[in-house]
Design a protein around this nucleic acid. Structure first.
Lengths: 120, 120
DNA sequence: CCGCATCCATGTGGATACTG
DNA sequence: CAGTATCCACATGGATGCGG
């Protein structure tokens, strides 16, 4: 094992942000942590479809980028807790807004896709 | 040539949104289009680092997802213009705030990385 | 319980050449 | 000008097994 992902030089703010939260699972991980601390296993169960490998990788990158904090309890059985940092928490309003947009889009697209929809 | 990308079933709103705008260049493309219509060549020059292949692919997916509109002028030389649709425009406040967050993070991280910073 | 190591399939993305 | 077509390197991501 060696280096953890190093981002290429961002071209602008939008680029910088997407390098940090643009992964396949990172948005959902941050969103799951909005209500407070979660253990590794809880994240793995609630972020459906993620494998242990990808979850660990995403968590490490989020940690390296200062968006989440990783706290290890040295005990048996092991316990590791993840929580948002200040910068990570600042992303929540944007994610909420994005979620609202998505919910509206899903509704509209679903209605338009219906056969014989009254909107057509 | 055949099928253009089909998204897997989204797990939630956050997932849905990132499937549509989460690519390597999509955020920057949408952001560049915030001020109005742009031609293909203009996009290619201003979205630095993108190749023709990837730009075309991203534009097609954004079009399929209803976030941008593609308008072809049948003339010589050819001319193709891209602009945001209604749903695409609704993403701009999100991108603007994300950009603000990123600018702040870049500033803070840069200061902390300086040797002998007064913040340390 | 929370990972890491390894192998392997598939996807992403760049370089180059070509076209209506 | 605005793309396609082809080739290929590398990254992403899944499956499985092992370890503190």
């Amino acid at each position: 094992m060696e280096k953890r992902t190093k981002h290429p030089e961002p071209k602008c703010g939008i680029d910088y942000a997407f390098q940090r939260i643009g992964g396949k699972y990172k948005g959902r991980i941050l969103w799951r942590l909005r209500l407070g601390t979660l253990r590794y296993g809880e994240l793995r169960r609630t972020v459906t479809g993620v494998t242990a490998k990808m979850l660990t990788q995403a968590l490490r990158e989020l940690e390296d980028d200062g968006l989440i904090e990783r706290k290890v309890y040295v005990e048996v059985p092991p316990k590791v807790e993840y929580s948002l940092t200040g910068p990570g928490r600042e992303l929540l309003p944007f994610l909420a807004q994005l979620r609202d947009w998505a919910k509206e889009q899903m509704l509209v697209n679903h209605i338009e896709a219906l056969p014989g929809s009254f909107l057509k």
